[in-house]
């Protein structure tokens, strides 16, 4: 012990010791590197992008005019662009609702009935698809939904292929094959984001105190009443927390609709096309303000509903 205490200290080491005795200074030094990184690189480029939405593209020369103008914003309000925004928001909402419905039984079973090994298995079985490769999952669905793919094969074997053909003949949701229809896009979105919904709901359900449920039963409520009036309201912040992910991720995705879906653009694809082939960074910047605004409103409501405590 004494040789530790008596060891000669380098100047750097005594400097750190001195800093540690001043909590504020120590805190500032800890925070400086991550804050600088995120503040300069991330926020810096984010604001630079937003600022560019007030520039415009010269249609003839294809050069970006660096003068303040609102013309890019009026361009964003064109009916074709509004269609893209509405289509994306609608898809995000539908995916969120479908995921909440699919996630609830899994989360409910895992939180209230699964024990020990079973619980670990459930947790792992939800975590694995969450962290496994996004592209691999999208690719798997392309294989499944393709015209000659497994879904057609299964239905054919079951003698139910006429159902698929009838479904594909429907306007709007149908198409030449499932992999080139709104339905296909919808299925893949639901699949890819489902684990993001399960985990927060499960976490919220785990926190429902057992004695509340017993009290409800003691007071004469049927299991159905208990579920409706006790469990569901307490689990709701978890659903909202999960919906932040499903909604935001659908809103900005440009790869899934490109691989599985029709020719209609989604918000992410519009941003991608504007900055890429069109070279119209100002319009791409204006487009990317839309999901930021939508998420800003969404997060404000989510905070009011207590979702942040359930994250």
């Amino acid at each position: 012990m004494s040789d530790l205490a008596l060891r000669r200290r380098g100047p750097l080491s005594s400097l750190i010791d001195a800093v540690y005795r001043h909590p504020r200074l120590f805190l500032a030094l800890l925070l400086a590197p991550p804050l600088l990184w995120l503040g300069v690189i991330y926020l810096g480029s984010l604001f630079a992008l937003l600022a560019q939405s007030f520039f415009s593209l010269d249609d003839f020369s294809g050069v970006i005019v660096r003068e303040f103008t609102l013309s890019t914003w009026t361009q964003l309000m064109a009916p074709a662009n509004l269609d893209v925004i509405i289509r994306t928001v609608l898809m995000s909402a539908l995916v969120t609702i479908a995921d909440a419905i699919m996630a609830f039984p899994i989360a409910y079973y895992a939180a209230r009935y699964a024990r020990g090994l079973m619980k670990a298995a459930f947790y792992l079985l939800v975590m694995m698809p969450l962290w496994s490769s996004y592209l691999v999952k999208v690719y798997a669905w392309k294989l499944i939904l393709a015209r000659e793919g497994i879904d057609t094969w299964v239905l054919d074997k079951l003698g139910l292929k006429f159902l698929l053909d009838w479904y594909l003949s429907l306007p709007v949701i149908g198409g030449p094959s499932l992999s080139a229809s709104y339905t296909g896009t919808f299925i893949v979105f639901c699949y890819v984001w489902l684990p993001y919904m399960i985990l927060p709901i499960q976490a919220a359900l785990e926190r429902v105190p057992g004695n509340l449920i017993e009290a409800s039963a003691d007071l004469g409520a049927s299991p159905r009443d208990t579920f409706r009036h006790v469990i569901l309201p307490l689990a709701f912040p978890g659903v909202v927390a999960g919906s932040i992910f499903t909604f935001s991720l659908t809103l900005g995705d440009y790869i899934i609709p490109q691989i599985v879906g029709g020719s209609q653009y989604y918000l992410g694809q519009a941003v991608y096309a504007q900055q890429g082939t069109a070279g119209n960074i100002p319009l791409a910047a204006a487009f990317s303000v839309v999901p930021i605004l939508i998420m800003g409103v969404y997060l404000t409501f989510a905070r009011k509903l207590g979702a942040f405590d359930a994250l």
Binding site: P34, L35, L38, G39, I41, Y42, L43, G44, S45, L46, A48, L49, Q52, I244, S248, L249, L251, G252, D253, Y254, G268, V271, Y272, Q275, I281, A284, A285, S288, P291, I292, M295, L299
Partner: peptide, 22 residues
């Protein structure tokens, strides 16, 4: 600020960085 890069759609992070590099 820490969760913002994953709370906002990835495409926004991507395009913001790209335009900053440009």
């Amino acid at each position: 600020l820490l969760i913002l890069p994953i709370a906002l759609p990835g495409i926004i992070t991507g395009i913001a960085l790209r335009s900053a590099f440009n």
